[in-house]
Amino acid sequence: MTTLTSPRRFIVLLVAVTAVCAVVAAVSSVGAVDIVFGLPLALFLPGAALVWAIDPWAHQVKGAQRATWTVAASIGVMILGGLLLNLTGGLTRAHWLILSSAVVAVAAVVGWLRAGVEPSPEAPAQEHTPFRLLNYLSLRAVAILAAAVLVVSGALVLSQRTNTEASREQFVQAWMLPQPASNAFSTTAQLGVKNEEGEDAVLVIQLKQGSSTSSWTVHLGDGQQWTHEIHREVGKSVSATVAKASDPASIVARVNLAKLS
């Protein structure tokens, strides 16, 4: 029962890695750390624990197929576990951490118990042969694979750059919306402008309500927005125009609200 067989050693390692990932993911708020420690909790560790619980001596699946089942089982158990979480506390970050850790813990116990049993004589099984990367990789193979990664990286950079350049649009968003938006006859409204020019812009905003006119010149960085609250008067329509300060005659956006009745 306490023999530290090869599968048991792996299960201990699996539990330790899961514990580290869960603890770090629970306390971390750093993006890269979350990715490194969070991703295995979703896509690898639960499945690995399940596979080792079901087949600790690698009688059924080995090598690449075992790795395939590991990833698939992780996804599967998280999907079915998600349905369970929906019935209990909800699909929150904390509950995902608990689910992933609990699956590994339960599977590890089952795997530990099963990994202590000697393989039956009818189906003699070897101890699991650990994967040794060096058996697969020569210097030549590594060099060629590195070249392939380099080619793919180049293609990705090329795609990213040309896509960014091609999809870059330059425009200004303007809106005028009753507050709250669900009440079209509200006496208050919001006038908003957002700069999507891809660079700083100086915008001239003109507001007209009945015969009164107001004007603002605002400097907005790329992605910045400006809002102004408007008090609507009954029987008067409200309209606004936006133009660039460099060319105030050319209106880039025009919004209005119908008369309040």
């Binding site: 968003q173 005028m176 919306l177 079209a184 025009r254 919004v255 609200l257 119908a258 008369k259 009745s261």
Partner: peptide, 22 residues
């Protein structure tokens, strides 16, 4: 009448028909 032009980005305009339905 009654239709508000609530959004404009130079290419896409959103009209609110709430006032026109009355």
């Amino acid at each position: 009448p009654g239709v508000s032009r609530i959004y404009d980005n130079g290419t896409i305009v959103i009209y609110d028909l709430a006032g026109a339905a009355k």
